[in-house]
Computed example of a mutant assay.
Amino acid sequence: MERKAHFFFALSLPKEIKYKMKDACLNLKGNFPFHRWVHHEDYHITLAFLGSAPAEKLQDARRLVEEGLKGQKSFPLQIHQLGVFGKGDNPRIFWADTVKEERLSVIRDIVFSACLRAGFELETRSFKPHITLARKWPESKPFQGSLLNDQNPFQDSPLHFKANEVVLYQTHLDQTPKYERMAIFPLMDE
C-alpha cells in the first residue's frame, strides 16, 4: 500500500541551532529512553499541518502564505524549556519550546489563515509552539516528570536564534531525515 505524502508549513531552525540541539539530545537520551528520536535535520516549529493535499489546494496555500508573509520581519527566539505531551507517566511526545514571542504567533496566524482560505481543515487545538525531540515513551518504565527541570540543558543556557524563514515541507516516512523542503518563504531582515 502506497502512503500519501503529507505536507506542513513550519518555522525552520538555523543549522547551527539544530546541531546544538542534537548534542543536547545525545546527553538527554540516557535519562529519557524514548523509542524514536527525531533526526536533527528535521527539527522545526509546526505552524500548520495540512496532511495529504491535492496539488491545486497546495498551490493555493503556497500562494496565500507567500502573499501573507510579504513584508514580515525576522525576529529573535530562544529555546529554553523541555516538556511532554500525553499521559504523565507514559508521554507520547518529548519537546523543547521557545520563550513566548508575539511575532511567532503573528506568523503562525498568517500561515494558518492562508491554509484555511485555501480550503484545508486544520487542527483546532490552541497553538503551543514546540520542537519535537522524541516520540513514544517505553511503557515498562514510568516517566519521571521531575527530570524535565533537572536535566534541562537549555534552562541555564537558552539557545538564541533568529527566526528568518517559513518552509513548506513534505514528509517521506521511509527516509531519514524525513522532511523535504518544498518551498521557502524568507522573512525580511530587521
Rank of each mutant, 00 (worst) to 15 (best):
E2M: 08
R3H: 14
K4G: 03
K4R: 10
A5L: 11
A5W: 06
F7V: 04
F7L: 03
F7P: 02
F9H: 09
F9T: 09
A10Y: 01
L13S: 06
I17V: 09
K18W: 02
Y19Q: 15
Y19P: 02
K20Y: 00
M21Q: 14
D23H: 02
D23I: 00
A24N: 01
A24Y: 03
C25A: 11
L28S: 11
K29Y: 10
K29A: 15
N31G: 13
P33W: 06
R36K: 11
R36C: 06
W37C: 03
V38W: 12
H40A: 06
E41G: 01
T46Y: 14
L50Y: 04
A53T: 06
A53N: 08
A55I: 03
Q59T: 10
D60E: 15
R62S: 15
R63S: 05
L64W: 07
G68Q: 15
L69C: 15
K70T: 02
G71N: 13
Q72E: 12
K73A: 00
P76F: 10
I79G: 12
H80D: 14
H80P: 02
H80G: 07
Q81Y: 04
L82W: 01
L82F: 04
F85P: 02
K87L: 00
K87G: 00
G88T: 00
P91A: 03
R92D: 00
I93E: 07
I93Y: 12
I93D: 10
F94D: 00
A96M: 08
V99M: 02
V99S: 03
K100N: 11
E102H: 05
R103P: 05
R103V: 05
S105K: 08
V111L: 07
V111T: 05
C115D: 14
C115Q: 10
L116R: 12
R117V: 08
A118F: 01
F120G: 13
F120T: 09
E121S: 10
L122D: 10
T124M: 11
R125W: 04
P129I: 05
L133A: 01
L133S: 05
P138E: 13
P138H: 15
E139M: 11
E139D: 13
E139C: 06
E139R: 12
K141Q: 12
P142Y: 10
F143Q: 00
G145D: 07
S146N: 15
L147D: 12
L148W: 06
D150W: 14
Q151K: 14
N152H: 07
P153R: 08
F154R: 00
D156R: 12
S157P: 03
P158Y: 11
L159W: 01
A163Y: 09
N164W: 04
N164G: 08
E165R: 05
V167N: 02
Q170C: 04
T171E: 13
H172R: 09
P177G: 06
P177C: 14
K178R: 09
M182V: 14
A183M: 08
I184F: 03
I184L: 09
F185C: 00
M188R: 14
E190T: 11
